[in-house]
Design a protein around this nucleic acid. Structure first.
Lengths: 215, 215, 215, 215
DNA sequence: GATGAATGAGAATTCATTCAT
DNA sequence: TATGAATGAATTCTCATTCAT
C-alpha cells in the first residue's frame, strides 16, 4: 500500500506534520498491520521510514503513543457517518425504506474500509490487548454508534419493517452480518471469489428477511 | 480460570506430560489469552507456572513452539463435531428441520466455547500474526468445516428450507451470525445483559427467516 | 598490552570508529587472545571496554561478526609484504643472494609479529574452528603467499642457491622453519632464553644449508 | 572416524569402562576435535553418544574433567617412544647414523599421528586455553622429550653429524621441521597432494643438511 | 549405573528510550 | 528538527550440573 493512501486514511495532510513524521506514521501503519504492535520494533519502523531511531521519539514520547496517535483519529472517522450531517441523511430522513437504509449503510462501510483497511486491521487486532483502545472504543465509538443505531432500529420498528425485539439484539444481528460481510470481502476472499454487487444484495436480503416482522 | 479447566480444554491428561509441563501450559494459556503471544515473556510464564525459566525450554525448543503446541490441538478439537459421529447426528439424520439443526449447532458451539474460551481467544487473536496458524487453519479447519457445511446447506436447500443461493454465501451469512452470537455472549456482554435461551431463539429465528426461500 | 598498540595493529585510526567502538575492539582482541573466542562472553568484553553490553551489538550484529571484523583486516595485513612494493624489494630485485632474502624475510615477519602478536594468536587459535576464517585464509592469504613464494623459490633455484625440488616442498620446509622460529621467540621462550641476533643467524644458516643444492 | 579407532587411540579397552562411558569418550573426542572444547555442549556429547545427559556427570564430575581424562593419557602416549624401551632403540644404540635416527623418528611420529589424529588435534587446539594442559605438557611432556632429545643431539654432535650449536636451537629447528611435516601431511594437504615416501626423504635430507657441520 | 526432568546462572541479543551534538 | 551513539533492562535461549527415581 502506498503512503499516499495511508495518508489519505488519516486525512492528516492539513495538520502540521513534518515530512519525516509522515513517513514514520506511514511506516508504522504498515508494520503494525502486518506484524502487530507488540511484535514491531521502533527500529524497524525507523528503518522503513528512512529516519533515525531518535526521530520517532522526538514526535512521540513512547511507542504506545505512536500507536494511539494512529488509531485514535481513525476511530473518530469510524463514527463520522453516525454523528455528522451524514447521519441525517443515513438515519433520519432520506432513507424511507429499510432496504435503502441498509444499502446505504453497507456501501458507506465498504467505502470506509476501502480507505482504511490497514488502520481498521490494526484497530481490530490491537483492541483485545490495549486497554486504552478498549476504553476509547467503548466510550466514544460503541456508545455513540449504539445510540444512533438504536434510534434507527426503533424508527424502522415503528414503521413495521423490523420485528419487535430488543434493539440490542437487532443491532447485534445487524452488526454481525455487516462485520462478516466486510471481513469476507476485505480480508478473507480474493476479489475473484467475490461478486461485489450480488453479495451486497444477498446480504441486504438476508438482513431484511431475517429482521422482518412475522406476518 | 482454574488449571483443571484449561487442562480439560486440551484434553491431554492421558498423554505423558510432566506436572511442571502441565503448569507451564496452563500458565501460558492464561497469559497468552490476556496479553497476546508477542507481549508475553517466557519469564512471566515461568513465574506464573512456578517453574524455572529453563524448564520451559526443556519441553519446547522455542516460545513459538509452545504457542503452537497449545493452539494446534485445540484446532483439531474445533472440527471434531464436523468430522466424527457427531456429524451424522448434527448434519445428516436426526435433524429433520433446519430449525433443529441450527439449534443443535448453536448449542454445540456454545458448549465448545464454554470449555475452550481462552484457547479460542488465543486462536482468534494470533491468527492474524502467525503464518503457521493460518496455514494449519486453512488446510485443516476451514477446508473441512466448509466441506461439511456445504453438504448441510445443499441438503436443506433441497428440502426447500434454505433459499437458492451459492452455498458459499449461505455459509458466510451463517457463520457471521454464529460468530457474532458467540462473541456477544462470551466476550462482549456480561451475563446479566444476556438472556441465554431467548437470545438463542432470536438468533435461530433470524437465521431461519433470513435464509428462507422467498415464497 | 596497551590499547594504542592494538590499535596500531589494526591501523584503523583513520576510519570512522566511535571511541567506544575502539575500546570494544581493543578489549575483544585482548580477551579473545587470552581465552579464545568461544570462551569469551560479550559481557566480559563490555566490562573490560567500559561500555554497555548493548553497545557492542550496535556496532556488530553478532559476536562472530566482531571476531571477523578483527581478524579479517589483519589477514590482509599479513600478506602486505607479499603483494605491495615490499615484494619488489623482498622478492625481486634487491636481494641478490638467498641469504639476504631470508634475513629480510625473517626480520620482516618478526617486525610483523611484534606489532600483531595478539591478533596473530587469535588467528592461529581460531583458524581450526571458524569455517569463515578458513575460507578467507585459503582464498586470500594462502593462495597469494604461495604464488609469490613459488616465484622466489624458482628464482633462487635458477640461481643455483636452492636445490631442485618441488617448490611446494621448499615452501613447506621454509614456512615450517619460520613459523617455528616465530613461535619459539614470541610464544614459547622468554626473552632471556632467546638471543635474538644469534638465533636468527642460526635459522638462516639452517635454511640455507638445508635447502642448498647437493654439490 | 569410527569408534574402534578412537578407542584404540586411548588404548583403554582393558580398564573398567562401561559401554556407555566408552561411547561418551568416543563422542567427546570427535566433537571436541571438530568444534573445540568451549564450543561443545555436554548435551551434544550425550546425544551423539546415545546416553542421557546425566550419565556423563556420573563418570566425570565436570566437563573439564572429561576433557582432561581424554587428553592426559594421550600425552602420556606421546612420550612413550622417548621413555620406554623404544628409547634404547631410537635414541641409543641401533641408529648409528643420524639419517637412520631421523627416519625412525619421523616414521614413528607418523605412525603415532595416524592413530591419534583426533586426540592430537584436541591437544594442539586446547593447549593455548587450558592452563592444566599447559602445565601437564610442560612438566611431563616437554621436559621429558627435551631431556632425551638433548642426549641424542649431543650424541650426534660428538659423532660429528650435527654442527656445534646450542642443543636447544637444534631441537627447535628439528621439532619445527617435524611438526611442519606432520601438519602438512595430516591436516593441510590431501593424500593426492602428498607423496609419502618422497616427502619423508626430502624432510630427512633437509634436516641432515641443515644441521650438518660446516666442513 | 543410568536416566532425564529440573534448575538457575549466564549467554547472546533486542529494544524502547535518552541525550549530546 | 533530526541524528545516531549509547544505554541498561529485559528477552529468548543455552548449558553445566544436580537429584529423585
Amino acid at each position: 500500500m502506498e503512503q499516499n493512501q495511508i495518508w489519505d486514511q488519516l486525512s492528516l495532510d492539513e495538520e502540521e506534520f513534518t515530512p519525516k513524521q509522515k513517513k514514520i506514521i506511514a511506516a508504522a501503519v504498515e508494520i503494525f498491520a502486518e506484524k502487530g504492535y507488540a511484535a514491531t520494533s521502533t527500529s524497524e519502523i525507523a528503518k522503513k521510514a528512512g529516519v533515525a531511531e531518535g526521530t520517532i521519539f522526538r514526535h512521540y514520547k513512547t511507542k504506545k503513543e505512536l500507536l494511539l496517535s494512529i488509531v485514535a483519529p481513525m476511530m473518530a472517522k469510524m463514527i463520522a457517518p453516525f454523528v455528522i450531517k451524514d447521519i441525517s441523511r443515513v438515519l433520519d430522513k432520506d432513507y424511507d425504506t429499510l432496504e435503502d437504509f441498509l444499502r446505504a449503510m453497507i456501501k458507506n462501510r465498504e467505502a470506509f474500509m476501502e480507505k482504511n483497511m490497514l488502520l481498521f486491521r490494526i484497530l481490530v487486532q490491537e483492541l483485545p490487548f490495549q486497554k486504552e483502545l478498549q476504553e476509547q472504543f467503548k466510550e466514544h465509538i460503541a456508545a455513540k454508534i449504539y445510540t444512533r443505531m438504536e434510534k434507527a432500529v426503533m424508527h424502522y420498528q415503528e414503521k413495521g419493517e423490523i420485528m419487535v425485539m430488543p434493539s440490542k439484539t437487532v443491532i447485534r444481528l445487524f452488526l454481525s452480518t455487516i462485520f462478516g460481510h466486510l471481513m469476507a470481502r476485505f480480508f478473507i476472499l480474493s476479489s475473484e471469489e467475490w461478486e461485489d454487487e450480488k453479495e451486497m444484495e444477498r446480504t441486504i436480503q438476508f438482513l431484511m428477511k431475517g429482521l422482518s416482522p412475522d406476518e
